[in-house]
Computed example of a mutant assay.
Amino acid sequence: MDMGLRNGFIFIFPCVLALSVSVSGRPATFLEDFRITWSESHIRKLDGGRAIQLVLDQNSGCGFASKKQYLFGRVSMKIKLIPGDSAGTVTAFYMNSDTDRVRDELDFEFLGNRTGQPYTVQTNIYAHGKGDREQRVNLWFDAAADFHTYTIMWNHHHIVFYVDEVPIRVYKNNEARNIPYPKLQPMGVYSTLWEADDWATRGGLEKIDWTKAPFLAYYKDFDIDGCPVPGPASCATSTGNWWEGTAYQALNAMEARRYRWVRMNHLIYDYCTDKSRFPIIPPECMAGI
């Protein structure tokens, strides 16, 4: 077991295998499971395709996507973010239904900052075409110094965003209260690196410094475990999938403590408490964990 103590809070993490396993049980490499969606010259394959480097410069950013879509499951990647002055840049890891009118989407967006300031991760959830559910957390470590694991867990009960196995965001299935929940559309796995200095850092006040380009982010250990679409129609509804098991239907006691710690110490924005945008509290905000 790996143990760390940060800000008086004890983290206990299981040992992580050096190589992730994809849906079919084989080692996952970038070329096997992903395709480049734009600016191929700005994505460089490393270590025989087991890792990649994303490049942002004044000519272009870049992006990639999974070759398949998935309905429920868990996806994760290890990412090392842009070091130094990354203000105005956004590195994103997300799932998207690729449907224009009624979009489902689960977002990690890593917002760059000036040197010495912590990275901010923004999460957002679109369900049945409705988004505007942003939350922001300042990461409690240097996200550019080493790789860290970012995970999206998605089942019939809830969606959980994890950072190194620490839950930072929970969205429960509350369809019984007429709250939309993404469960009908499969989603692909995407990542992009691009310039967004009109909003990304301090609401657009901090602009990108192109003298610091190229901006480089690194990815490895691509891990997708879910129901591929097209695929067996019974997969997504099966209660036998491990991610639908009792242990994954709600946060356990340790996860709940970690979640509260993040919310108390590192949450810097929550749409649920933004009365200027939402004078009436959105119904999902009262669902708890």
Rank of each mutant, 00 (worst) to 15 (best):
L267T: 05
V160A: 04
C272R: 01
F34N: 02
N59R: 14
I10K: 10
P279G: 05
A236V: 09
E32H: 08
G240F: 10
A287M: 15
K220E: 12
V229Q: 15
G240S: 13
V137P: 06
E284I: 00
N241T: 06
C272K: 06
Y94D: 01
M187R: 07
F30T: 09
R260F: 08
F64T: 02
T246Y: 04
K78D: 15
R44L: 05
L205F: 02
L205I: 02
T273W: 00
A247P: 08
I268N: 06
A144L: 09
P182T: 05
I208M: 15
N178W: 12
D100L: 00
N113D: 09
L71Y: 00
T37E: 08
R202A: 11
L5Q: 02
W243Q: 04
M153A: 14
Y271E: 08
L31Q: 14
R6I: 04
P14R: 03
I179K: 01
K212L: 03
Q53C: 10
A200Q: 01
L46V: 11
C285Y: 06
K80C: 06
H266N: 13
A18E: 15
L106W: 02
Q69H: 00
G245C: 12
M153W: 11
H128S: 15
D47P: 00
L251Q: 04
I125Q: 01
T37L: 13
A247Q: 12
G288Q: 02
A65N: 11
V121C: 14
F30K: 07
H42G: 06
V16N: 13
E175P: 04
F108W: 10
I168G: 07
D209N: 15
S97F: 01
V55G: 05
D164K: 03
Y119A: 02
C235Q: 07
V55F: 04
Y218V: 13
W242R: 00
F13Y: 14
R257M: 08
N113P: 08
I289P: 01
R257Q: 06
S276R: 11
H148M: 01
G204E: 07
Y269M: 06
M77D: 00
G84Q: 07
A65Y: 05
G4Q: 14
I79K: 01
P118E: 04
I168E: 06
S191H: 04
A217S: 14
H157K: 14
G25R: 05
P230E: 11
P167L: 00
N138R: 12
M153N: 13
W199Q: 09
N252T: 04
I179W: 06
I125W: 03
D100F: 11
N174L: 12
K80G: 12
R74V: 14
F147G: 10
M187I: 07
F278Y: 10
P283L: 09
